[in-house]
């Protein structure tokens, strides 16, 4: 994962004519995102001024593609992601909610032997303020700057952006890695990107209950990150065994998955933590 993955200019949308795909493509275009083409199963050749094809292969006869944003419905998401991986698209952002876990297991296998990077699924995508919008993050709340956000939650990301912008801290990257059990990219993948990109001066990380991604990220932060990290974990008062909205937000018997344990691990690793997003942003100087 490098800055080039996120800054490259030739972008396509898979599922461009669907309800969500068409609505958000319009938003992405009005933010200045360079969408060169889209795919759709329907017999359509244009979406506004954007040419629409049946397959990525057909697009690649004319264009080289850097980034694909996927909106196709969950039952077809695996096929769409496989198509993008097979077409060697460097960055794939899958917004779709409800992709079966077993499909993600197969996708992870395929990614392991490919150079493509997947963000998501079940995520709001990626926003590079002032550059382009790769997904559904409300760009009007952001300002360009030098803070990087990585998050498992959509609305808490928007909260953080909004508060950061108001406090005068613009953003370089806003990456939603998604709320599912199995994800394309992890906190650590994004932390590494932020550490290696000199334009990033500070990192905001938003996690929640379930899984141990935040705990392993804490170890990574301690060993590899020398930029300030501000972390918030949602779900301090969540009961065990109950799924809280996100498919991935469920507590088992492993106490490392609890919000408090994650917060403590991050605190120990040198990150600043707080009990709410607004308190967290007020810690930033």
């Amino acid at each position: 994962m490098t800055p080039q993955h996120f800054l490259a200019k030739n972008i396509i949308v898979q599922g461009i004519t669907g309800k969500n795909g068409s609505f958000h493509t319009q938003n992405m275009l009005s933010y200045g995102t360079n969408i060169i083409a889209g795919t759709s199963r329907r017999d359509v050749t244009k979406f506004g001024n954007v040419p629409v094809y049946k397959t990525i292969k057909q697009i690649q006869q004319t264009y080289s593609i850097d980034i694909s944003v996927i909106f196709v419905p969950a039952p077809h998401a695996k096929t769409a992601i496989f198509e993008a991986i097979d077409a060697r698209i460097p960055l794939i952002v899958c917004i779709t909610e409800g992709v079966p876990v077993h499909d993600m297991l197969k996708i992870k296998q395929r990614l392991a032997t490919s150079s493509s990077i997947l963000i998501g699924p079940n995520c709001p995508g990626v926003l590079i303020p002032g550059v382009h919008n790769l997904g559904i993050i409300p760009a009007n709340l952001s300002t360009p700057g030098d803070t990087a956000i990585v998050s498992r939650s959509g609305t808490l990301t928007y909260e953080a952006m909004n508060l950061l912008s108001a406090a005068g801290f613009g953003q370089r990257y806003i990456i939603g890695i998604g709320g599912d059990m199995v994800r394309g990219s992890s906190f650590i993948d994004c932390l590494q990107l932020f550490q290696n990109d000199p334009t990033v001066k500070r990192i905001v990380m938003i996690g929640e209950i379930g899984g141990t991604g935040e705990t392993t990220a804490a170890t990574y932060i301690k060993q590899n990150i020398n930029k300030p990290v501000y972390a918030y974990i949602a779900g301090l008062s969540a009961p065990t065994g109950v799924q809280m909205g996100h498919a991935g937000a469920i507590l088992g018997t492993n106490t490392l998955e609890y919000a408090n344990a994650k917060r403590q691990a991050l605190e120990k690793a040198g990150a600043h933590t707080a009990e709410s997003i607004s308190r967290l942003v007020s810690l930033i100087s």
């Binding site: 959509g154 609305t155 779900g235 809280m244 909205g245 996100h246």
Partner: peptide, 17 residues
């Protein structure tokens, strides 16, 4: 009542706190 799983959890947390 909140929108988004993260915000909904954060709301519950704040009330408990």
């Amino acid at each position: 009542i909140a929108n988004g799983a993260g915000l909904a959890m954060a709301t519950v947390d704040a009330i408990t706190a």
